[in-house]
């Protein structure tokens, strides 16, 4: 039996949880290929034209998987922290996919809503497990494996690895030392994991920054406890999981890590980001150090060159500001 997991959206957050779980159940996991033009084009064809790029891309990934697997795994993620929901498009995602793509295999789209309590995750996994085996012991063992792997993954991210590096490390045990380059420029690159770490969507932004000799920090590198602390700074928090993490980690980087600049990567037509982007912008603007801020908006036509030019100019500006040139 083969289960398909699309390589986008929550993939970068939850894949290390799903993979050992399914393998523990004796199920093969098939992941869609890395995002590329063909996948996106396919997704664009299947979706309403006003959806954001990540949602279109998700449809592309599903289309790429549908003939290769017996079951598609795309749980309806409602809440991952017990307090806030995900973007409404995540909530309606399984329904959107069903209505737009034909010839789909069986879909597992159980609801995962941690507002119902901390144990909900285990109940959820148990329900999924029952689809594949009747053996209780097997499910529990798989859950245990998943949990263990997942907490290792989170630790690796906190150490500054990118999700891809962390995946490799979990598979092979090889732990790359995050290169500390001596550059004294430190940039916070904010955005949703599915935009930042998907090289196709972000047109290789993170790599590019590193090649300029910039130290990059991202929301995934901020410990949970710090995020929670930052959440108290706002009179009212946003409603969406990933957006909140962007705002909170922005405050963390500004207050605790003295970053020299902030780049916000956002998808064209992203609803929550209309709010997130403004909050982050005001946060940098009213910081006593007046932190330079750049918004990079990404859509299906974004060219690598255009983004590179803007980012380069931005880095130059910071260099000049710091008296480095």
């Amino acid at each position: 039996m083969r289960v398909g997991i699309p390589r986008t959206l929550s993939f970068f957050t939850l894949y290390p949880l799903w993979k050992p779980f399914f393998e523990g159940l004796g199920v093969d996991v098939v992941v869609s290929p890395e995002s590329n033009k063909a996948l996106l084009d396919e997704g664009v064809r299947e979706t309403v034209n006003d959806a954001c790029v990540p949602i279109k891309l998700f449809h592309g990934h599903v289309a790429a998987l549908k003939n290769k697997v017996d079951i598609l795994f795309m749980p309806r993620l409602v809440s991952l922290d017990g307090k806030h929901t995900l973007c409404p498009k995540f909530l309606g995602l399984p329904d959107m996919v069903r209505c737009s793509i034909s010839g789909l295999p069986e879909i597992i789209d159980f609801r995962l809503d941690l507002k119902k309590g901390k144990l909900e995750l285990y109940r959820f996994l148990y329900r999924v497990g029952q689809r594949f085996t009747a053996s209780r012991a097997k499910i529990i063992r798989a859950i245990w494996l998943a949990r263990h792997n997942f907490s290792r993954y989170r630790k690796l991210l906190l150490q500054g690895l990118t999700p891809q590096e962390a995946f490799n490390c979990l598979d092979t045990g090889y732990e790359p030392q995050p290169e500390k380059n001596m550059s004294s420029i430190r940039l916070a690159v904010l955005g949703y994991p599915y935009s930042l770490y998907d090289n196709y969507i972000s047109v290789g932004l993170l790599e590019k920054l590193k090649s300029y000799g910039v130290n990059v920090v991202t929301p995934e590198m901020v410990p949970e406890r710090e995020l929670k602390r930052m959440s108290k700074n706002l009179p009212k928090n946003l409603f969406w999981y990933y957006s909140n993490r962007v705002v909170w980690s922005c405050m963390y980087f500004l207050q605790k890590q003295n970053v020299d600049g902030v780049i916000h990567v956002t998808a064209f037509g992203c609803g929550p980001d209309a709010m997130t982007n403004k909050l982050v912008e005001l946060e940098t603007k009213y910081n006593p150090r007046k932190i330079p801020f750049l918004t990079v908006t990404i859509d299906e036509h974004t060219g690598e060159v255009g983004v590179a030019t803007r980012v380069e100019a931005f880095v130059d500006l910071i260099r000049r500001k710091k008296g480095m040139v």
Binding site: K89, C99, G271
Partner: peptide, 17 residues
């Protein structure tokens, strides 16, 4: 409204309904 999140979800489902 353009970029209205819930209505985009609704719209994707509308053809089927």
């Amino acid at each position: 409204p353009f970029t209205c999140i819930p209505e985009i979800v609704a719209k994707s489902i509308m053809p089927a309904a």
